[in-house]
Simulated assay, not measured.
Amino acid sequence: MEKFTKLSGVAAPLPVVNVDTDMIIPKDYLKTIKRTGLGTGLFAEARYHDDGSLNPDFILNKPAYQNAKIIVAGDNFGCGSSREHAPWALLDFGIRCVISTSFADIFYNNCFKNGILPIVVSQDELDKLMDDASRGSNAVLTIDLESQEITGPDGGSIKFEIDAFKRHCMLNGLDDIGLTLEKSSSIATFEQKNASAHPWA
């Protein structure tokens, strides 16, 4: 998993509450177990017209936000079904951070396992960040995970809280497999001892 230390990028405002995982990645895109290629389906029902053409009114289709790395969203982001394809689609599109006042628990944890940083802020802080994100190509936010700080385009900053273990995993690029591999020497030692003690096994 790619490390997350500091991220600077355009933030797209999505002032919608209860954005569920079906909106993030519709069920038609769940036929694959590959983590790549799902970016085209991100917010598909809002991004595309019925004929497949881009909807110019959707925020991520607007020129200033087509390369957004951050989404500033309304309350309860990621609710609905527990599909892991939702963070896969966000990451494949290029989104590395989502900021909201709250997240659905399963989606929140899935983000950390896939290299996306979900940040919880207060409503007042979200209102400020939403205003920052409304500045088009000037809507650049900097997320510093080490100092747990968001810096806006005007230089103002917001501190955020995060679980220490999740922060450690993100800073070091450790998903579940990476955490297991950190114990590889201990696992190898156990296997050797076990083989000696039970040679018939």
Rank of each mutant, 00 (worst) to 15 (best):
L54K: 14
R35Y: 00
L60Y: 04
K69I: 05
L38Q: 13
V72G: 12
G41L: 04
K34R: 15
F77T: 05
R47C: 07
D50Q: 12
F43S: 13
N61H: 06
P56C: 05
A44S: 14
T40S: 15
N67G: 01
H49V: 01
D57L: 02
A46C: 12
R47I: 12
P56A: 08
N67K: 09
Y48N: 12
N76I: 10
F58K: 04
I33H: 13
N76E: 06
L60A: 09
D57G: 02
G78Y: 00
K62W: 02
L38D: 14
G74Q: 11
L54T: 10
A44G: 11
L42A: 08
L42I: 08
F77V: 04
D57N: 11
K62H: 05
L42G: 09
G41F: 03
A46R: 13
A64T: 12
A68L: 00
A44F: 13
P63Y: 05
D57M: 06
H49L: 15
K62Q: 15
G52P: 11
I70P: 11
T36F: 09
A44W: 13
I71T: 04
N67C: 00
A46Q: 15
R35L: 03
P56F: 01
N67S: 03
N61T: 06
G52M: 05
A73F: 10
F43A: 10
K31N: 15
N55L: 05
E45K: 14
D75F: 08
G52R: 09
L54E: 13
N61F: 03
